[in-house]
């Protein structure tokens, strides 16, 4: 590591190289970057990426290829920072902090497993499936993906290639079920009284998943997004209300540090 100081293990921000860029949906780009450091990440963790904006952008990993030391970052262009990121090309450098945060806990063997993703929240679920599909034996896997329209069902083909059942829902009915992921989630919970769910997506989707899993006996992990400052736990910007006493004198915990993945029981989601 850089500049070892006494007993501290110094980390720092560092540059990584974009080796591939692909447009995967309108305003959605996946950048494959080379970085053995980032490729040591757990699914659900994120990189805090420098942009011309005033803050870095937290981006979770869409794929983690430890063997080749590469990760994927999927960015939706919604503002000056993400637009700049979407315009990076192969050969460009990104400055990153990370991997940061607490990712998903691995699935438990023997329990059916549902991965529920919405929009730009889909990527970390792919990383999770890729990481654990062949190392943890579960009797059944279903991937439930939602988006506003067919074109935004990102990574659906990637999931398909992993040979798992993929169910989709779109707000406009242009692919899969007309509506949200909720009906597929409810249906799946009806069949599987026990099991495990990992979900990531817009807050409205996560709140809905939070509510429908209230009386379900399985384990639900939710990967949250929140406007973030430093990314390393210092500024207390990216907090979420939790049941257990959080850090720094409140019921809030930091999405960047205690999260972004939380067990549903830890959260107070209204």
């Amino acid at each position: 590591m850089n500049g070892g100081k006494g007993m501290h293990c110094m980390k720092r921000d560092y540059d990584v190289v974009v080796v591939q860029r692909r447009v995967i949906a309108p305003q959605h780009v996946e950048l494959i970057v080379e970085s053995p450091d980032l490729a040591s990440a757990q699914p659900g963790q994120f990189a805090h990426v420098l942009t011309p904006g005033m803050l870095r952008r937290p981006i979770s990993f869409s794929r983690i290829d430890r063997a080749h030391g590469q990760v994927g970052l999927i960015v939706q262009s919604v503002g000056i920072g993400t637009e700049w990121l979407c315009n990076r090309q192969a050969g460009d450098r990104l400055n990153v902090l990370g991997p940061l945060g607490r990712g998903f806990s691995p699935p438990e063997a023997g329990q059916p497993w549902a991965l529920v993703g919405g929009g730009v929240g889909i990527p970390p679920l792919y990383a999770a499936l890729q990481a654990w599909q062949n190392t943890v034996h579960v009797p059944q896997v279903v991937v439930i993906l939602g988006a506003r329209a067919a074109a935004y069902l990102i990574m659906a083909d990637d999931f398909g290639r992993l040979g798992v059942e993929v169910r989709t829902a779109t707000d406009d009915g242009s692919a899969g079920q007309h509506g949200t992921v909720l009906s597929a989630v409810t249906e799946w919970m009806g069949v599987h009284r026990e099991g495990q769910m990992m979900a990531c997506g817009p807050t409205a989707m996560l709140q809905a998943v939070y509510q429908v899993t209230a009386n379900w006996s399985g384990r639900t992990q939710l990967a949250l997004e929140q406007r973030m400052g430093c990314g390393i736990g210092a500024c207390l910007a990216c907090v979420v209300a939790t049941r257990s006493p959080g850090t720094h004198g409140s019921q809030y915990q930091r999405v960047c540090t205690e999260g972004p993945v939380f067990d549903r029981e830890e959260l107070v989601f209204s």
């Binding site: 929140q226 406007r227 500024c235 910007a237 990216c238 907090v239 209300a241 004198g249 409140s250 809030y252």
Partner: peptide, 9 residues
């Protein structure tokens, strides 16, 4: 002190 509700930045 609990701080303010998010979003905070």
């Amino acid at each position: 002190w609990p701080g303010n509700p998010p979003p905070r930045v």
